[in-house]
Amino acid sequence: MGQLSQKTTMLLRWAKMLGGGTAVAVEQGRGRVCVPGELRGYWNDLTGKVSPDTLLDGGGVPLSVIAGGERVHFPIAIFQYALGCNDLYLIDGGREHLDALGACASWAVAAQHPDGSWDAFGPIGSAKYTVSSMAQAEGASMLLRAARLLDEPSYEERAKAAVDFMLIPIAEGGCSVHMDGQLFLEEYPQVPRRSVMNGWVFSLFGLYDMSLADCSYVEDFECSTRSLAAHLGDYDAGFWSYYDLERRMASPAYHKLHIAQMEELAAITGMKEFSAFSERLSRYQNSGLNRARAIVRKVGQKLTEKSDAVIVQ
């Protein structure tokens, strides 16, 4: 698909996101049944990813539609759907949610490479990226919960392999940057680091979950949370939040996600830096002028940036 067609598809998708007309960017507040210190509910509310409109294959695993109409298995979408099912099962005890979690966990194990990685972006047509810290972490979070609810201890080993791969430096094919005593977790591994904010936090959630299952990961989690806390100013545009270090504006949906993620990190870690940043972003969001300014800049960026891969549904 040419860049013009991709651009048109992407803008139509983004317009739907602004109007709440797509499940790709449903609102994700704080987790509904999560408890700090426990492998129970997930840290963001992903239950909106589970709906009668979710496309599923014959085995009950979600499918994503990319530009051009092809239906593919996109690991991040599958893991988020499964985490939403986990929470719905904890909320209402519905067997269908537990079965869906099991189907996604089985798919994850079969799709995981021997080194613990998943090809996160190849299925959606990316020529630039393959692995992702966000995919590794969300896959681990899902497998750790499935291991307990489904009594499948082997899933915990698969989760450990996923996190171990995430912590490998980008220069060695992994998803992290180790620099000056800091640990950056990269949703889109590249040099120089892009450090997408929401992806880093989702990666931290997976690392936290692994630390609850195995205390040998506590040091890595604490190092990366301190690193993020020290760099929160990089994501502050003065009136809105940035999506990444390349200074892309966060969409309204991602800005709200940033707020929820900061609140949850504050609850997990007790670090005041995260609660203070959440409060600042909330003040930005309460200004209609700030919101309009952010949307105008976001649309301008979308019109000029080159699309590598586009998910339609």
Rank of each mutant, 00 (worst) to 15 (best):
L46G: 00
A267F: 01
F205I: 08
S227F: 04
M249R: 11
R193L: 15
E187F: 09
C175E: 05
F239W: 10
S51P: 04
W200Y: 15
E187W: 06
L56M: 14
A213N: 04
E187M: 09
A171R: 13
G37V: 08
Q136M: 15
M271R: 14
T9E: 13
A25M: 10
M271E: 05
M197S: 04
A266N: 07
E157P: 00
V131M: 10
C223N: 10
I295K: 04
S203C: 04
Y188I: 02
D115T: 10
E273P: 06
A82R: 00
S141Y: 01
D244W: 03
H73R: 14
D164K: 10
R32V: 11
L167T: 02
A237W: 01
N290E: 06
A237E: 03
T54R: 09
R95G: 05
A110E: 13
F202M: 11
A23S: 14
G139M: 08
A229D: 01
S203Y: 00
A82V: 04
A292T: 14
R30M: 12
K16W: 07
V109T: 10
A266S: 15
K302E: 10
S176K: 03
V131P: 00
M1K: 03
R280I: 08
V218H: 07
C85N: 12
G59L: 06
D180A: 15
A105Q: 00
A309M: 02
K302H: 11
Y243P: 02
A25V: 06
E152L: 02
E156A: 15
E263V: 06
M179G: 08
S307K: 12
S126F: 09
V312F: 07
Q112M: 13
D164V: 02
A292N: 07
A82M: 06
E246R: 12
P114G: 13
I170P: 00
R226G: 12
L46R: 00
R40G: 08
P189R: 02
L204K: 02
E279M: 08
G122C: 09
R145G: 01
V163A: 03
F121D: 00
K128D: 10
G84I: 04
P192T: 09
D57I: 09
A276T: 05
A309V: 05
D57Y: 13
G21I: 06
P36L: 09
S241P: 01
L207H: 02
A147H: 00
T225L: 09
C85P: 01
K49T: 06
E70P: 03
I268R: 11
A213S: 15
D99L: 15
R248G: 15
K128T: 11
L143C: 06
G93F: 09
A171P: 03
C85L: 07
I311Y: 00
P52R: 05
Q261L: 08
M197G: 02
Q112Y: 05
Q112S: 07
Q313G: 14
R148L: 14
L185D: 01
L63W: 05
I91A: 14
R158C: 11
